[in-house]
Nucleic acid binder design. Structure first.
Length: 971
DNA sequence: GAGTTTGAAACT
DNA sequence: CAGTTTCAAACTC
């Protein structure tokens, strides 16, 4: 995309890329920030770059220097294969390819971080630490990063903790890593040479259009090995998909950009930072030092940065995993847009990790798994895992909405995220068990998009995140944030993360050389075999085409996975073992080729790799009930180009809009659109009478009012139970869950990238950074995120009370709620947002995570209606549960989702303001025009399941017109 | 698992 | 830009 030169000239591009790559890192604000913080000044990866040049350096391919780095990173990334790296490091895996891949992957993967584009946020809450995670590619704004730091309770803002902590956290602590790394380095070097050759071949191929003829050119040796080899039985098989990687990833990434030394320094600094800030002891420090050494060596060897990364990774299995992951993942350049620094670790015992994920980048969010060993922590409160999610901290969060430019979420990410919940990042904390069950549900639900597998995946991912989920501990918390890409991606993270066990399945057996890919037809065959080796792989594929992990899998036969036909390629990720593609060139080994092809495609269509799903700023997040499990996407999200469905009525996955869980838009050329997520406008509102809709809403509202009253009673008595107890129809529950998920995601979506700051505030509320909640500023800024925060709060141990306090203070709901929740600080919110509505939701949430299930997210947006009304409704009515069933029904209506948004909008476009607006409003809200209050309410509502969707819907219906007007006025 | 359908991507 | 072909996923049986 960015590359000035067309892809046609591979060699030139390669050279360019080599030279250019390092620069971006420096440029990145993150880098600067880090450099400032760390005693050692990060040096650009220049040396690294050189090294890479010879090798596959991923970045090289990218044309624009800045972009290049990003592009590389952006290109691919599938978080995957945690294990691979381990093997590589251990030296077990002798395949240089693997090593390379791992290294590359990491390098690629992380590069964005440095650039600031992809932030990994790691926060470690645990003293012991076990966990580290990284958000894979979430993009955070640098601002966020910085903010987080400042915000971090423990840490001094001055400390560059954010970055460093991430790194440090990420760094696994295996003592042996140094040695291993060295070995791996050597291997890598040798491999690099080969790789270069291979890449050259690939380039040729690309030039030639990567035709089959070229296949023969590739060295047979180069079979794709992969990442996958898993010598260790213990380790999960190298799955492809994202896996949770411990902080290592961060290191690797840093190295990649900055250089190993710098990285090491950073990592160390980060450790210290973390320690100080979070009081969490970090084991990794020692490793970090080792890493330095390794890194240095590596640099001298002129090994690609990736390799360097690998070395570090080698230190710990986790690190290895990361590397493997990184290797797989290609980050699109687009992803660069954002980053979010990790929010500083929260002081909570649970330690919240915040990862910002950027929706923008197609890159999949990867969840880093703390390495395992440490994980005993299950029981311990400590750990948490972060999944990609946006940073929890209020301030830190910058939610960036996928920018138009950007490549927002890649479709994959979105899809994965959405469906699998991958979009949402999840952080699990071990904080409270009480919440755990719920949390777990959420995750599952979130993940559940793919019904069959998701749970597993979720569990797995959760595992990654924290053994908690899997373990069934309730401790884990989830936090998920949507990202546009957000979903991003994040979304990917969870999904991507595979359970170790699964990974085995996924993985092809081994990577004997024979298994490695061959470009020749034979190779193809071998590939097939290879792929097939894991019979399950394919079938694991969810309907979505995602593996259980949420990873894309393809079955390309003729395109060599170098065309957009290939989902993996299109998604900017490398194919994985589980793919059944033939003659696949979309492998790390052929990175250059891949990049070249990408460039070519981009030259034709600059947006070819841009996320297909773009969030419309105008729309508010609406909850949409998916057919199967409702999936939520921000209502605003729409397919970039729109679909062209003729026969599927946009009700099947043939429809890209449907597949992405987004409604059709005016841009769609579909015929007879019945997209459940939002039919094409003409169909949507037009088809359905607004009146009928409004009537429904009103009815539902009334019902909800009754429900609310009933619930209020419940709340007093035990709202939680009710929420939980409230029998939701299965579909409804899903919707709720999804909604919650979507909600998170939506939150991210909402926050406009531009608004970066605004988003942060909500996080402040987040349990992770409860302290932050105190800050009014934050709240103000983060109106949009509030909901997310709230949800998070649920998850968080902090009890509901805090949340309620922070969030709900304004809550109009009755004093009853207050009693229950005890909202100390309600004023803040109230003043700010007039967050009346929100408070309600908050209450519910706070009270019970379970409640969460009940509330449908979609309504949130609709809630615009003044919170006052809601309150009144609540007070007035007292009928119990009717709501549940009703709401689902309402939600289920295809029309519903749009109703709130579209009904009143003159343009038929969604009226609800984007996050930005919310944020802005929120900031201003203290002054509190109704507008602001409403806005808050809208989002808040969705976030809080407790409030019956019906109510929200009512408000929406009632105020929809007003809202639209408001929105327009705002704009 | 094979075959069909579908719509995007690629091509003309 | 429109039409056609190619492709691979989604779907059906």
């Amino acid at each position: 995309m960015d590359s000035p030169e067309p892809s046609s000239k591979i060699t030139a591009t390669i050279n360019n890329t080599l030279s250019s790559d390092p620069v971006p890192a420096q440029d990145s604000p993150v880098f600067n920030y880090i450099s400032n913080l760390s005693p050692i000044q990060p040096v650009k990866g220049a040396p690294i770059v050189q090294d890479f040049s010879g090798l596959n350096s991923p970045p090289l391919l990218l044309t624009s220097p800045r972009i290049n780095t990003h592009s590389r990173s952006s290109l691919l990334k599938r978080s995957q294969f945690p294990k691979l790296s381990t093997e590589v490091f251990s030296g077990r895996n002798e395949d240089y390819n693997n090593a390379i891949t791992d290294s590359d992957g990491t390098g690629v993967f992380f590069s964005p971080l440095r650039s600031g584009l992809s932030p990994f946020v790691q926060k470690v809450s645990d003293n012991n630490i076990s966990v580290h995670e990284q958000s894979g590619t979430p993009i955070r704004c640098v601002d966020e990063f910085l903010v987080d730091v400042s915000n971090s309770e423990s840490g001094n803002p001055s400390n560059s903790n954010n970055t460093s902590p991430k790194v440090s956290d990420s760094i696994p602590q295996s003592p042996n890593s140094a040695e291993d790394s060295k070995v791996s380095v050597v291997n890598i070097a040798s491999k690099d040479e080969r790789k270069d050759e291979i890449q050259e071949d690939a380039a040729r191929v690309v030039v030639e259009q990567a035709e089959e003829d070229n296949k023969g050119k590739f060295p047979s040796n180069q079979k794709y090995t992969g990442v996958y080899s898993t010598s260790d039985p213990d380790l999960p098989s190298p799955g492809f998909c994202t896996k949770i990687v411990p902080g290592l990833a961060a290191h690797s990434s840093l190295h990649y950009h900055y250089g190993d030394q710098q990285m090491a320094q950073l990592s160390t600094a980060g450790h210290t930072m973390l320690d100080e800030a979070s009081n969490i002891p970090i084991k990794s420090l020692g490793t970090a030092h080792d890493c330095r050494d390794d890194s240095v060596k590596i640099s001298t060897m002129s090994i690609a940065p990736d390799e360097g990364i690998v070395q570090h990774d080698s230190q710990t299995k986790a690190s290895q995993h990361q590397s493997g992951i990184s290797r797989r993942c290609l980050q699109f350049e687009d992803a660069q847009q954002k980053m979010a620094p990790a929010s500083s670790s929260s002081q909570n015992a649970s330690g919240i990790v915040s990862c910002s994920i950027q929706p923008v980048s197609p890159a999949v969010i990867e969840v880093v798994e703390p390495v395992s060993s440490n994980r005993s922590s299950i029981a311990s409160n400590k750990q948490l895992t972060q999944l990609v999610s946006s940073s929890v901290n209020s301030e830190s969060l910058n939610v960036k909405v996928s920018k138009p430019s950007g490549i927002g979420l890649h479709l994959n990410s979105i899809v994965n995220g959405m469906e699998a919940g991958s979009g949402v990042t999840v952080s699990v904390k071990s904080t409270q068990r009480g919440n755990l069950s719920i949390r777990g549900k959420k995750l599952t639900s979130m993940m559940s998009c793919h019904p069959s597998k998701n749970l597993k995946n979720c569990l797995i991912s959760s595992n990654v995140v924290g053994s908690n989920l899997t373990s069934g501990d309730n401790d884990g918390k989830h936090e998920s944030y949507g990202s546009d890409a957000e979903s991003v991606a994040a979304s990917l993270s969870l999904n991507n993360a595979k359970p170790l066990n699964d990974s085995v399945l996924l993985k092809p057996t081994e990577h004997t050389p024979s298994n490695k890919r061959k470009f020749n037809s034979e190779h193809i065959d071998s590939n097939m075999d290879y792929n097939q080796s894991s019979p399950q792989k394919k079938r694991q594929k969810t309907s979505d085409g995602n593996d259980g992990d949420g990873c894309k899998r393809c079955n390309c036969k003729k395109t060599k996975c170098l065309k957009l036909y290939c989902d993996c390629f299109a998604a900017g990720v490398y194919c994985v073992d589980s793919c059944t593609c033939q003659g696949c060139f979309n492998r790390p080994e052929y990175e250059d080729t891949v990049l070249d092809v990408r460039q070519q495609i981009q030259s034709r269509n600059p947006l070819a790799f841009a996320p297909k799903i773009v969030q419309h700023s105008t729309s508010s997040p609406a909850i949409i009930l998916g057919e199967g499990g409702a999936s939520f996407t921000p209502s605003s999200a729409r397919h970039k180009r729109g679909c062209n469905c003729k026969k599927s009525m946009c009700l099947k996955k043939y429809c890209e809009c449907y597949q992405a869980n987004v409604g059709c838009s005016s841009g769609c050329r579909c015929e007879g659109c019945k997209n459940v997520f939002g039919p094409k406008e003409e169909y949507g509102i037009d088809l359905v009478n607004k009146h009928s809709i409004t009537e429904r809403l009103e009815r539902s509202v009334e019902e909800e009012v009754e429900m609310v009253t009933a619930t209020s009673g419940l709340l007093q008595s035990g709202p939680i139970n009710q929420c939980n107890s409230t029998p939701l129809t299965p579909s409804f529950r899903r919707s709720n869950v999804d909604a919650s998920k979507s909600w998170f995601t939506s939150g991210r979506y909402l926050s406009s990238p531009d608004s970066g700051q605004a988003n942060t505030a909500p996080y402040g509320l987040s349990p992770g950074s409860p302290r932050n909640s105190n800050n009014h500023d934050i709240h103000q800024e983060t109106t949009g995120d509030m909901l997310d925060l709230v949800t998070f709060d649920h998850e968080l141990n902090y009890g509901n009370a805090k949340l309620a306090n922070e969030i709900s203070p304004g809550f109009h709901v009755s004093g009853n709620m207050d009693d229950i929740l005890a909202l100390p600080k309600s004023q803040d919110w109230a003043s700010n947002s007039g967050g009346q509505l929100i408070p309600q939701t908050v209450h519910f949430q706070s009270t019970d995570p379970l409640i969460w299930h009940n509330s449908p997210m979609t309504h949130m947006t609709q809630f615009d209606g003044s919170g006052m009304n809601t309150l009144e409704l609540l007070d007035s009515d007292k009928k119990p549960y009717v709501m549940e069933d009703d709401t689902p029904a309402i939600l289920k209506d295809s029309s519903i989702p749009q109703i709130g948004v579209k009904v009143n909008s003159p343009n038929k476009k969604r009226v609800s303001p984007p996050y930005r607006h919310l944020n802005e409003i929120g900031s201003s809200s203290s002054g509190g025009g109704l507008k602001t209050g409403r806005k808050f309410i809208l989002r808040a509502v969705p976030s809080f399941p407790p409030l019956s969707p019906c109510i929200q819907s009512k408000y929406v219906a009632a105020h929809s017109t007003n809202n639209s007007e408001k929105d327009s006025s705002r704009k």
